[in-house]
């Protein structure tokens, strides 16, 4: 069988996050809750965060979606836990750059998120990978404007 391209997309680390998601659930008394849908495909995600002094103390996600969107959420929660909000948002920018095939700066301390680099070869799936990062950005922006 010739699924070589598929192997690049569905790397084992991605499928591991999909099948064994990290930080799945809801923080009941979180400081920030954000919901986001992808209306074209039906994916939805809810992030709950506990942000203290601009630092992400804890973050959980729940939702429905394909392996790429759910794995990306799982990876993101690991990457941003313990980080300053500003740093978390800049990781999102670098992640977007990676999706667009541009130069990006992703370091080892950001967990597994670089494993999704292959998604940029599948233009129809980029929005799956970025859903969780867009949700984070939306949540932070809305809380800042309150």
């Amino acid at each position: 069988m010739n699924f070589n391209n598929l192997d690049q997309l569905y790397r084992s680390v991605i499928m591991d996050h999909y099948k064994n998601p990290r930080n799945k659930g809801v923080i009941e008394d979180g400081t920030l809750t954000v919901d986001m849908n992808n209306p074209t495909c039906g994916d939805r995600i809810r992030l709950t965060l506990n942000v203290v002094d601009d630092v992400v103390e804890d973050v959980k996600f729940e939702g429905e979606g394909c392996s790429i969107s759910m794995a990306s959420a799982s990876m993101m929660t690991e990457a941003i836990t313990g980080q300053k909000l500003e740093k978390a948002l800049s990781m999102g920018d670098e992640f977007s750059n990676m999706m667009l095939g541009e130069d990006y700066d992703i370091t080892d301390d950001m967990g597994d998120i670089e494993a999704l680099a292959g998604v940029n070869q599948f233009p129809a799936r980029i929005k799956c990978a970025t859903l969780t990062w867009k949700a984070l950005e939306k949540g932070v922006r809305e809380s800042a404007s309150e």
Binding site: N5, S67, I68, A124
Partner: peptide, 12 residues
Amino acid sequence: HPHDLATALDTE
């Protein structure tokens, strides 16, 4: 997931 299925079929 149907999106993963559709991507796999698309590669063929």
